[in-house]
Every structure is written in structure tokens, then in C-alpha cells.
Amino acid sequence: MAVKTLLPTLHKRVHPLASPVYQQGLLADLALRPFTEAVAGAAQGPLRAGHIEVLQINVGKRCNQTCRHCHVDAGPDRPEVMPREVLEACFRLLEQSAIPTLDITGGAPELHPHFREMVARACALGRHVIDRCNLTVTQLPNYADLPEFLATHRVEVIASLPACTPSRTDAQRGEGVFEQSILALRHFNTLGYGQEETGLVLNLVTNPVGALLPGNQASLEREWKRELQRRYGVVFNRLYTLTNMPIGRFLEFLIASDNLEGYMTRLVNAFNPATVVGLMCRSTLSVGWDGQLYNCDFNQMLELALPQTIFDVSAQDLDRRLLRVDQHCFGCTAGAGST
């Protein structure tokens, strides 16, 4: 069954929210406590990065899905694809540094024409590779052998699945996505993924389906392991609960459902100073499809770029850099944190 998309991308609809500046303005107009003040109040600001542990490359905004919560505004119509010269610059940085992990994201990163080359080259350099997989991509024509390729290169798969039941998954990601995701997970399982003894890591990521905060990660993981095994015979390693960022298409949902102020107020009220020390932006360098650099993928979508680009930077240049923050950052510090 083909995946039914929900709405075209903001970009395709020429929606005002396609503008990062417009998105930032909406959040700023809410007159909530500034994130910079919350961090300073916790005596931990201004935020600075540590060593780069993860090079996260966003290889483009093309995706076979158009999920309602997507912060990237990814979809089949998005033309952005990381060109060869940016890809080569990423590998120059990787080769000249000791950054241990390459995290490949998108869009559906596997749709990039050189995805497999990237994986193979990073593995040859001895780096740990993460593929941010939407699962349904493995059900597309010409991608059926993707799980075998990933297993051969021992790539860690971090797969999106908002719920362990069909209705909530399909409500967020499109009709039929749950069924296809289960097929994909079973395929990964047949190759040894998700089983401790094989070392092939299959982690799941769940984002709340609505204007909600994520539940307790450990509790949900126990339930998911039991239910996915019982209902579908699926196993996995870890479940990560992530907060939806109030940007992109999730911001559109918040506005349309009259939940923006309530959701942002909950994020601000749930600010947990203990999360600040482990924020992913402190150990991640995010590269855009065009070679612009960011502290994280969320900043990337708001175009909060660093002054350097992938063409003129070394890993050492970026250590201890001042991190760019704004109101959306409350999404990473709410409750138990979201990194």
C-alpha cells in the first residue's frame, strides 16, 4: 500500500510558516520567559559547546512522507539535496578530526543518491554511523535491500515510530505508515537488528502525537518492548522519547489547533536546569545540505547559522563556541530533556 501523505509541505503551499524568520517572530511574540534568562537563572549560561562528538549531516529535505510534526518541512516536493562538494567537505572534516560519529539525517537520508557511498566511506574511516530512518523508505521500489546494506556496514538505525498502535502512528505520519513500519522492523529483526547479542542496534524514537510532552522514557520502553513483541513479534534496543519542537509543521499544527500558547507555556514551565549539561548541541555539529553549519538540526531549520561554513572550518575552531539559542530551545530542556 502506498503511503498517503497528509498535507503538502509548507514550502509547496507557499505558507508563511515556510519562513524561518516568521516562525521565530511567532514564538517571540508570545511574551514568555526568554530561554536565555532561564539558562542564566540556572547559573549555566551563556551556553558553550564542548568537543564535537557527532557530525550530523542533513543531506536534504526530500522525503517519501509528509509527517504532520516534521520540523524540517520535508516531503517529496523538496528539491534540496546535498551536492557533491559539500559532501566532500564533510568528509574532509571527518578525515582531519577524531569526531567518532557520523549521524546522517534528512528528509529521508537514504533517498540521497550518494547515501550508500557516505556510509561506506565513514565506515572505512572507522567511524560509527547512524541512519535516521523513517522505516517506510525500505518499502519503496529499489530500496528493499537497504536493511541488508545497513547491516553489512553495522550502521546504527534510529527509526521513527510515534506509537506502538496504528491509529496514532498514521495520524501523525500518514495512512498505512504503521503497517509498513512494522514490515520494515520485522525485516531489520530478521537480519539480527534489535537483538543484544548481534550488536546491530535498532533504536526507536517516539514523538508525542499532539500538543503533549513525552512520557517517562523508561516506562514507555518497557511497555513498547512488551507490546511490540506480543502484537507484532518485533524487538528493538532502546526507545527514545523526544519532544516536538514548536517549529515547522508542528508549529502549524499548534496554531491551527489553538494550542501554541498552552504548549509553549508547558515547555517553559517544565524547564529543567539539569538537562542543560547534556544538551545535544554541546557535542553536535550540524551541517546543512548547502554546507552551512549549525548547533543542531532545529537551529538549521530556523537558519540560525554559525559564521563558518563546512568549507572553512576545522573541528578545533568550533570547540567552546557560543551556542545560538532561542525560544524553541525550551523543547530540549522540558521535563527529562529531549536529546
Binding site: 503533549l212 517517562n216 511497555e223
Partner: peptide, 12 residues
């Protein structure tokens, strides 16, 4: 209602 959804329950 909020808590149930956040803890993984669905409307059914």
C-alpha cells in the same frame, strides 16, 4: 486526559 496520552494510551 493529557497524562494518558503522554504515557502512551490512545483514545480507544
Amino acid at each position: 486526559s493529557v497524562s494518558c496520552l503522554e504515557k502512551g494510551a490512545d483514545i480507544e
